[in-house]
């Protein structure tokens, strides 16, 4: 459920490297759709890291990534991810073998 009470289909997602996170809370605090929360789990350093608690609300805006001082999280829109995958599929077809 988004902050204003509406529900929407996700337009993106986030990727987290939990081991880099230092639990500073920037991403959770400043996510515009409030879709992140601290995981109940913690990493080897003892910090709770963010998880996508409400994936349907993620727009892939990437603000979390811009804020994160530890480079532990970043967001992407599904269309960006799909475009990258498409490029790889096309490249694989053209080369007729496995791409790098």
């Amino acid at each position: 459920m988004a902050a204003n009470g509406t529900s929407r289909k996700a337009r993106g997602t986030v990727f987290v490297r939990p081991e880099l996170c230092k639990g500073c809370d920037y991403c959770i605090e400043f996510c515009p759709t409030d879709c992140l929360e601290f995981s109940p789990n913690f990493n080897a350093k003892g910090y709770h890291y963010p998880v996508l608690a409400r994936p349907e609300d993620c727009t892939g805006c990437g603000l979390c990534g811009l804020y994160c001082p530890d480079f532990a999280i970043f967001g992407m829109r599904f269309e960006e991810i799909e475009a990258m995958r498409e490029r790889i599929r096309v490249q694989a077809q053209n080369e007729g073998g496995t791409p790098k």
Binding site: F15, R17, G65, F71, I81, M84, R87, I88, A92, K100
Partner: peptide, 9 residues
């Protein structure tokens, strides 16, 4: 996908 896109921060 056999090879993953190079998704990195």
């Amino acid at each position: 996908l056999p090879i993953q896109p190079p998704l990195d921060n």
